[in-house]
Amino acid sequence: MFALSRLLPLSLLALTLACQKSAPAQPTVAPPTNTTFTNPLLPAGPDPWVIRRGDTYYYMHTTGNNLVIRKTAKMSELGSAVSTVVWTPQQASVTQRDIWAPELHFLDGKWYIYYSADPLCCDGHRINVLENANADPTTGAWVDKGRIAVPGNDLWAIDGTVLEQNGKRYLLWSGHEVANSQVQRLYIAEMSNPWTLIGPRVELSSPQYSWERNGSPAVNEGPEVLKHGDKTFIVYSASHCSTDDYALGLLTASATADPLKLTSWTKSATPVFVKNPAGQAYGPGHNAFFQSKDGTEDWIIYHANPQTGQGCGDNRSPRMQKFTWNADGTPNFGSPVAVGTALPKPAGE
């Protein structure tokens, strides 16, 4: 996601693209029934994120210039969910632009949003943290906890997420090895609290395989944590978002391993989720995970473009589908389901 949409607010990007070419044809979507839904869930929504708290799902995605939370009891009804703007940096006297990949986490009895933004200095994007003590994150005041970075190593960084393992908490993100670098790598560092990193960062993955190096620059980004049985997985996005071949890769470790040790992780030599041209799913990636309302099903939510060559802009729409598990305990995401296909709603809805 280091392209034009990473440099402009999405609304401005859409206007720019509209001036360059006619609007693409919209995918045909079948009407849902009482027991089914269809993808996409929204007309646009890059970098989707979902978290469940009690009986409520909270959803966020990249808007470009602010932070918005959608609140719903049913993920299949995300399109009609109540939408609340919870943070606009300019109104909070914070100078930032190009706000990307927000994630909402509930830690130590409070809500935290991790988001990436360009502070108009310092070689570009950094990860920032907001805190809210209210029980409902769409209400109450959000407090700016500032930038989260490795002490003495404050470099370009995006796509922050949280891993909890062995009683400790860690931040995962996509960043640069040195200032002015282009290659995006995955890093991890221990947290002393939800807005502070301690100790050194450890590089967990870089774009080494050909399927991770489509487009320019080469990219590993959007790390997301998935746990199952005795394993911890990091599902990440690989290749540049400007290409149709943006895809998902997989890192695997024991659920009791030290995540700061590179030897704890095994990297899959092949992608685990790739484009489906026949189904109008190009560049599927930057995902999140959630369980069905009754807790019996595992679901992935991700963005994809409906047509070839649409890159990193507003055409990326959020889609979701149920996934299963292989005999060895690894996730089996299958193939992106075709746009407009009637799918059973998550169990319990």
Rank of each mutant, 00 (worst) to 15 (best):
A288D: 13
N287P: 14
Y57W: 07
N220I: 05
G146S: 10
A44V: 11
G109I: 10
Y209I: 02
R126L: 01
A25C: 07
S268L: 06
P137T: 00
G175H: 02
Q184S: 09
Q321V: 15
G140C: 01
L42S: 06
D144C: 00
S174R: 01
I300G: 09
T88H: 03
H61E: 08
G160D: 08
S237E: 04
V178I: 13
W49T: 01
N180E: 07
S206M: 05
S83D: 12
T84W: 02
R213A: 09
E349G: 11
M191D: 11
R6D: 15
H303G: 07
L186R: 06
Y115P: 02
T72P: 15
A23Q: 13
L248D: 11
A81M: 11
P40M: 11
P344W: 00
S206V: 01
L13K: 05
S93T: 07
L120E: 15
V85W: 00
T330P: 01
K21R: 15
D328C: 13
Y114M: 04
R147D: 07
F323C: 12
L17T: 05
D55Y: 03
K231H: 14
W299S: 06
S216G: 04
R126W: 02
T252S: 14
L107F: 13
R6K: 07
M60Q: 07
A117R: 06
L186S: 10
V150S: 11
P194D: 06
Y170R: 12
C241S: 14
A338E: 13
W111S: 00
Q182K: 08
T138H: 06
S5R: 07
P207I: 03
V150K: 13
E177I: 04
A347V: 01
S5F: 05
A327D: 14
F273W: 13
E221F: 05
T256I: 03
K293W: 03
R169Y: 11
E224V: 12
I69S: 00
F106E: 12
V162T: 14
N315T: 06
G160A: 09
A25M: 13
H61M: 05
V143S: 02
I301K: 01
S83M: 12
L10D: 13
